[in-house]
Design a protein around this nucleic acid. Structure first.
Lengths: 216, 216, 216, 216
DNA sequence: GATGAATGAGCGTTCATTCAT
DNA sequence: TATGAATGAACGCTCATTCAT
């Protein structure tokens, strides 16, 4: 199987790397099956360990779920907030960078599964959802809001609702991620990811641009 | 007992209405918990019948799932395709009508749960997903595509990718529906549905409008 | 198997009798194996039902344990306290009646297993032990104490410690019960129950008799 | 770590003392929890070693159980049989010495737990029970029987059933031991050990004394 | 010798499914 | 038609046992 780790890996290195290997396997299985339908046997098999090993690192299936989310959250935040520093002068470029960066680093990777997972399971894990909302969603929307505000201040963007616009802007990317982990895995689609993204950026930038602003 | 259905309902209508009552209850439970975590006990209790009764109408839990989707599909199609006839002359109005109509009739109602359910469970039910993709998604996207094509032909909309734009346009509404059935049920948000929708329509229409077209 | 119930029993009668059938089976298995080593499969098999059926009547293995004790407690109390009324005039006869009665109705029957179970598991179920101590042990010792007090008052018994003597008197019977459910089940003994009991009563009565009292 | 054994112990003694340290820890845990509910983790932790170390000295949990019994058996016998030599002339004193000695050296110490353990687990380990019956119980009862026989021969004791009396005599002490390791650990009792023992000896001696024998 | 990470068989518990009433 | 008691396969979790270090 693809998930089988090299058996030759030294014991000590394994010990420290284990938790990440396990959460990575768990993420894949949880995203594919959903938390409830996911079997710990499958998670263990994908990680190349036995079922009991999971319990050396996590107290329960639910604890494993929380660890999966927790672990998926850190990169989402860290990477994102660094972008505000770069491209500080060009809001258009900054916004593009944030949105496209999210897709590149999160949405199109395994980490995007965390988004699907949370949207699917939020009601079963309200505390985790609340944490995620604060730690990821709000901070992510803040990034977009900051870029928008700068663009408006510079006269590049029309004045728009700074609360409502960020979720609207990110929605097509989140939906593409959902799609990637749902229908895309079993049905063909007429639309390539590339043309979806191009169309999305084109629409967003046209939608935001201030009347007098020069076309890029 | 609390689960007892209203005794006032006429016996005859009951018999025929049963399946819809059951799928309605099942939809609610499936959307809240996810298919796998949903218990038939809960479905039965919500429908006010005993668990065994479910098996008088559906062969299995999976058959119930399919019926839920099936039933949620019909109105989505029927209602949608009628719109092309009306507002045939004004593409902007037609597009608004389609998108807003979807939200009003589907996204904001219990039926919106079907969308969440399918996105969450597509990989566990690939045949159902394939059917849904054909019977709902493609036909729904076609509606939007037609409206776009008319608008472009009339010079109201910029020429845009007719394959990629429809899914981009519907994405924010689908995401709002997902949100409604996930985080909204357990976390507060700063954005009202109304301002989200206003911002969305505003952005979309600005993004699509041909340079020379008159602002509405 | 001996525990298999008649399959012909009507459904309705079963429903009401079930809990007692299950606790009876559980008592037997718990006494033989100990609570922890007892498997619910064995309990179910002995009761002639499937494992799942146990959960229709008891929430958990621990709840089943508590029910077993609870159920074993009632007859122990009820039967015992009725004896004080009879033989009210002859303390010697009363004491014999209490001790011998305990053996006949409790110690030598399946109910005696409850005593073994509680002695073996008290530390794992402290709350149950506390309840048992109050509801059974204290009340049982009170019976003996009352008989002793009457006998002393009538000059039939030597004056003895009214607190310490009852547990000493019941100990050989309890131990015989323990023996019955432990070594007796797997090892031969040189002593018959009958001669043990005769010797016990003889010793006790000689030990208690007041110097001047007439031999019986 | 907390589990680390005292470093001050000389290395050489350690090696030889290990098995006894392990069986002592095992006895304590087995008595408290019962064999089945006892975890080897707990045994190891109490002994201050790792779980794997147990397997350097014992093949299995069951082997550890047998060693615990085995080890508890030796002192019970050795000490007991030495008493017959001393107090050879005074049967009353001899009997008191045997019974009281058992309580002092066995019943009231950690070794008393072996008695509880065997009574609780006999049916799960019939071979061990058979061995224990021969190696401990029969020989222990023989001690008492010998003392009784001498007392009867000297006219100090009434003639009593020499088979049945020994188990009756030891029963209250065994029961006190059971109590010590069960209810006493979680419930209060009105009777002190001292008054229980005094009452017990008093009753036994009065019960056994020949009519003409002088009171002590 | 000693460790503790890893294993996997086994058990308590759940729940979709069946069927006698 | 409707019920709900009964079932048993399946899964989360435990823990005695092993073995590389």
């Amino acid at each position: 199987m693809s998930g089988t780790p090299a058996k030759a890996a030294p014991r000590r290195r394994r010990k420290e790397a284990r938790p990440q290997e396990l959460t990575a396997a768990a993420l894949a299985v949880f995203v594919e099956k959903g938390f409830s339908a996911a079997k710990l046997d499958d998670v263990a098999a994908r990680a190349g360990v036995s079922k009991g090993t999971l319990y050396l690192y996590f107290d329960s299936k639910e604890a494993l779920f929380k660890a999966v989310i927790q672990e998926g959250v850190v990169p989402a935040i860290e990477e994102g907030e660094a972008m505000l520093e770069n491209n500080a002068d060009d809001p258009v470029q900054l916004l593009r960078c944030i949105l496209f960066g999210w897709w590149e680093r999160i949405g199109s990777t395994e980490l995007g599964g965390v988004s699907k997972l949370m949207l699917s399971e939020a009601r079963n894990f309200p505390e985790v959802a609340a944490y995620y909302q604060e730690a990821v969603i709000q901070r992510g929307l803040n990034l977009i809001r900051t870029a928008l505000a700068r663009g408006i201040a510079q006269g590049m963007f029309r004045p728009v609702d700074l609360e409502a616009t960020p979720p609207v802007l990110i929605a097509p990317l989140l939906h593409l991620t959902m799609w990637h982990h749902s229908f895309a895995a079993c049905c063909d689609s007429n639309v390539s990811v590339e043309s979806y993204l191009n169309t999305y950026f084109d629409l967003v930038m046209n939608g935001l641009r201030a009347p007098g602003a020069i076309r890029e």
